[in-house]
Amino acid sequence: MALLEIKDLHASVADKPILKGINLTIKPGEVHAIMGPNGSGKSTLSNVLAGNEAYVKTAGQVLFDGQDIDDLAAHERACAGMFLAFQYPVEIAGISNMYFLKAAVNAVRKYQGKDQLDAMDFLDMVEDKKKIVKIRDDLLERAVNSGFSGGEKKRNEIFQMAMLEPKLGILDETDSGLDIDALRIVADGVNALRSPDRGFLVITHYQRLLDYIVPDHVHVLVHGQIVKSGGKELALELEDEGYASWVDEKGA
């Protein structure tokens, strides 16, 4: 069974149609990359999948792990194993990152019928996962994303993903704003999480990330449609040629 099956998905934001018939299937173990010009609808796609209600699905069907996502509220999708690493992670004052994560981990575990982690188990897990993304301790103690640098926020997203162990990780431009070393660390983190039963949808503008996280498939999203799909070599092509041919075609 496919992990994610998107069939003829249409979606609007503020009554403006953005996604115009997306078809995409991700099988367990696969990494798919989406590339595309600014404003083409990449973040819209990730928001629709994750259930942000500012983004309205107007047609089509999305099955996540066999379930129609229309039947799941945003938090249920998360609990069922969908994780979105945000392009712009949100700051939440007054709540420590650790506290937030413990609540999140236990909410997910509760949904999945697993025991709640107590403080000790949780700390053990943190120690374990910290190695994956090398996140600094002070960032764990601070309020969620508050005053984090751009790169620190992105790293925190991947740390959260490691903690929540999702089935599907959607990474929306996680590489943007990362320095070269951080890019390497984040990519290594994602690679460490790759497994036969876990899939990834990696949104990026840069081929460089795909040198580290090697995708099985690459899709080009322009004007809310996937205009081309291919293997990892497609990313290299795009790096050379840009999106001009599709953008011109559409007259944008």
Partner: peptide, 17 residues
């Protein structure tokens, strides 16, 4: 939405904030 996406329902999210 950020909290929702991490598995917390809206009520839990509001009370937490």
């Amino acid at each position: 939405f950020y909290c929702n996406q991490r598995g917390l329902d809206t009520e839990e999210a509001v009370t937490m904030i």
